[in-house]
Nucleic acid binder design. Structure first.
Lengths: 138, 138
DNA sequence: CAGCATCCATCTAGATACTG
DNA sequence: CAGTATCTAGATGGATGCTG
C-alpha cells in the first residue's frame, strides 16, 4: 500500500492496482499501457465510443487532423490488440466498417475518468501554464 | 471547487462527458488529452503516485528504460501543466525533488481505471494478438 | 472508397559527452 | 546529482500516384 499523505481529491480513492505486486504482471501491464497511452488511439477510441461504428474516411474526418497513414496504422494496432473489429463489405466501391469490440468499449469506459478530468480541470491547467511561463521568463 | 455537471458515475459504461457538446471546450479538452495521453507521462505519474516525492535519478530508475532527455522533457511538460511540483534544494551536490500536485494526484486517480483495465484484460489482449497474427499470415 | 507505396520535410527519441 | 548540448536514427506528417 502506498503511503500517501492526505490529498484525497475528486476522483478515485487511492488506486492500488493489484498488478503492482507481481513484477511479471507489472511488466505485462506496462507494455499494454505503453501501447494504449497514445494520442491517436485515445482519440479514435473516443470517436468510436461516442458515434458507434464508422467507416475509414468517416473516422478520419471525425478525428480531424490525423494523416491517412497514421489512421491506417493506429486502426491496425487497435485491431491487433482486439480493441477494434474491422468488417469488409465486398462491394464496389469498397465499404469497411470499424467498430469497438467489447474490450474496446471497456477501455473506453476506463478512459472516461480521464476525459472528465480534462474537462473539469482545463482552467486550472491554463493557470498552471501561465504561471510556468512567467517563472520561466525570469 | 469545480462545477461538475451531472455525470456522477465514476467509471460509467457510457461516458457522456459534458465537453462533447461545446466545440470550443472540445478542442481544449483534446489538447489536454493529447498531452496527457503519453507513455512517459503516464508511467511517471504512476510512480510518483505510488511512491510519493522522488528525486530526478530515482524517478529514472523507477520508470526503468527512459532516457534522461525524455525524463527531463516529460517532467518539464508535467510541471508546465501543473501536475508536478519541482523543489530545488540549494546544496552540493544538487538535490531536486519532484512530487505530484493536487491536480497531478487527481489525474492519477482518473487513470486508475486504465491500469485496472490493463491488469484485468492482459490475457484477452494476448489472445487477440495471437488471433490477429494468425489472420495476417493467411 | 479504402487502402498501400513512395518521396520528402520535420519532429521526436535515444545515445553519448560534458558541466555547475 | 541533475541536468544541458549535440548528433544520429527513427517515427511521423504531407503530398501524390496507384489499385481493386
Amino acid at each position: 500500500m502506498s503511503d500517501r499523505t492526505a490529498t484525497e481529491s475528486l476522483f478515485a480513492p487511492t488506486c492500488d492496482h493489484p498488478a503492482a505486486e507481481d513484477p511479471a504482471v507489472e511488466a505485462l501491464v506496462r507494455t499494454i499501457i505503453e501501447q494504449v497511452a497514445d494520442k491517436w488511439t485515445l482519440l479514435i477510441l473516443e470517436e468510436l465510443a461516442e458515434r458507434g461504428t464508422m467507416r475509414f474516411t468517416e473516422i478520419g474526418r471525425a478525428v480531424g487532423d490525423i494523416s491517412q497513414k497514421m489512421l491506417t496504422k493506429t486502426l491496425r494496432d487497435m485491431e491487433r490488440m482486439g480493441l477494434v473489429s474491422r468488417t469488409v463489405h465486398p462491394v464496389v466501391p469498397p465499404h469497411v466498417d470499424y467498430g469497438l469490440t467489447d474490450l474496446g468499449v471497456s477501455l473506453g469506459g476506463a478512459f472516461c475518468g480521464v476525459w472528465l478530468w480534462a474537462a473539469e480541470n482545463r482552467d486550472r491547467i491554463e493557470v498552471a501554464r501561465t504561471a510556468f511561463a512567467a517563472r520561466e521568463k525570469r
